[in-house]
Design a binder for these strands. Structure first.
Lengths: 249, 249
DNA sequence: CGCCTATTTGATCTGATTCAAACAATGTGG
DNA sequence: CCACATTGTTTGAATCAGATCAAATAGGCG
């Protein structure tokens, strides 16, 4: 079980704190949430298109993504998810899933029934607001991806996505200096960015060639953040993170 | 002022009823909401990127869109909005706008201060849920557009968007038979779909050539719904509308 | 070692862009 | 009510970003 010893280390607490200020009681409340924990293999569907889930999941460890399979074997990935994320909160208010959620790597996930989550959110209305805020930020991420897919050139899109992932991982304490785990394949990037694998590869090599970033063995190495940010036309406003200063209280 | 005589005709009531079941008191509550009403010209920014709005707006008449301006004069339109929509509810929980909201046609809009909306939503928690549901559906629309921009060919994208707009307009009673007002220019479609104006034009002409749909003088005429739906690979699930049967109570 | 999955490379093809210009519709002021 | 301006649609030709097809290489792992 996730220990309630130190709420500040709970992935969901870290995630919510990255976008919302929590009181100590709220932090404890979250850490004490009764959940069942499961280990999932890589490339497993957690929820499928058309499902009517009765629970939500919280990613404790590992990477996941939301996607929809299309005719002709194509698919579109909508978002990548990292520890602390609750990728399917929407099932609280939308009964039928219109897309799927799958693991990318092996994951440890916490599951909590809607019937347990609802009273919890009633008891902690501010946490409910934090969840709503999170889903709104989620939508902002979709908008930003739309810009990329619709109007940015391939290398820019990729650089932008790498910036986003790095910043989000940093916000929940999952980076070390200028590196982080990033076990996403080029085929997955392609499905997320609306590109072919081949083109993702070439663009990624171009970024590597200029000494901007590098992905090796599932690790992202940011060699020149300023240049990466510029290459991706990246402005983190849309992630609506709390200023890091405020976090170090 | 919007009369409270018949709540059922209030655009916001119609909109929420299209996705959520309201009680008579809730309908009355909405219709009695104190708001200030303004008439806006076409192509006006209602809220700008970077603003910190203190109010939300409800579209009573006219068309609007959310967009973000990009370097090089490009822009991406994220969504089109019709009467009943509250395109900027998100400002309730996200202080700084990361995109803009503009009118497309002249609009009549109702404005309501956050400080008035918050107690209202506390008094009617189910309406608060309905709003949350609406923002989640909004995100679903973004996802569907991502698929279009990322993975569908131009004529399919356009057909899909026309299907979506027609279905949404019908859900709030703004269609007549197989036609509806649709005062959106080809340049606006292009900005929404990540295409050039020229290509939008050619694709639209192709659809017209097959007797599928036609846009003339700001009016959409669906000549063959089945074919349009097929051409757009359109499945309305993601709009999560209540079955029309349930509406006719 | 050998299998499977991921990355890399090369050559060719195409959907969509861009630029440029004509045309149609709508509106405006004299 | 017509001349003119403005905005939106249509057409054509040249070009390009990115797709597709095919095959080689490189890792990771039982």
């Amino acid at each position: 079980m996730v220990s309630s010893a130190n709420p500040d280390l709970h992935p969901l607490v870290r995630k919510l704190e990255s976008i919302f200020e929590l009181t100590p009681e709220e932090r404890r409340g979250i850490a004490n949430l009764l959940v069942s924990i499961r280990d999932l293999q890589a490339d497993q569907d957690v929820v499928r298109d058309g499902d009517r889930p009765a629970q939500c999941c919280i990613i404790l460890e590992g990477f996941a993504c939301r996607y929809k399979a299309l005719e002709g074997g194509k698919r579109q990935i909508f978002s990548f998810h990292i520890p602390g994320d609750i990728p399917d909160v929407l099932s609280l208010h939308i009964t039928v899933m219109d897309h799927a959620l799958a693991t990318i790597t092996p994951c440890k996930m916490a599951f909590i029934h809607h019937e347990a989550l609802r009273p919890f959110l009633n008891a902690f209305p501010r946490i409910s607001d934090a969840f709503w805020r999170d889903t709104l930020i989620d939508a902002g991420v979709f908008r930003e991806w739309m810009i990329g897919i619709g109007r940015r050139q391939a290398p820019v899109r990729i650089a932008h996505l790498l910036c986003e992932l790095f910043v989000r991982l940093r916000a929940v304490g999952l980076t070390e200096g200028n590196t982080c785990e990033l076990p996403i394949t080029q085929a997955e990037f392609a499905d997320a960015l609306g590109l072919s694998t081949v083109h993702v590869n070439r663009s990624l090599m171009a970024l590597r060639g200029t000494g901007t970033v590098e992905i090796r063995q599932g690790k992202l190495i940011v060699k020149d953040w300023a240049r990466l940010q510029q290459a991706g036309e990246f402005d983190p406003t849309y992630l609506h993170l709390r200023p890091p200063a405020a976090k170090a209280a």
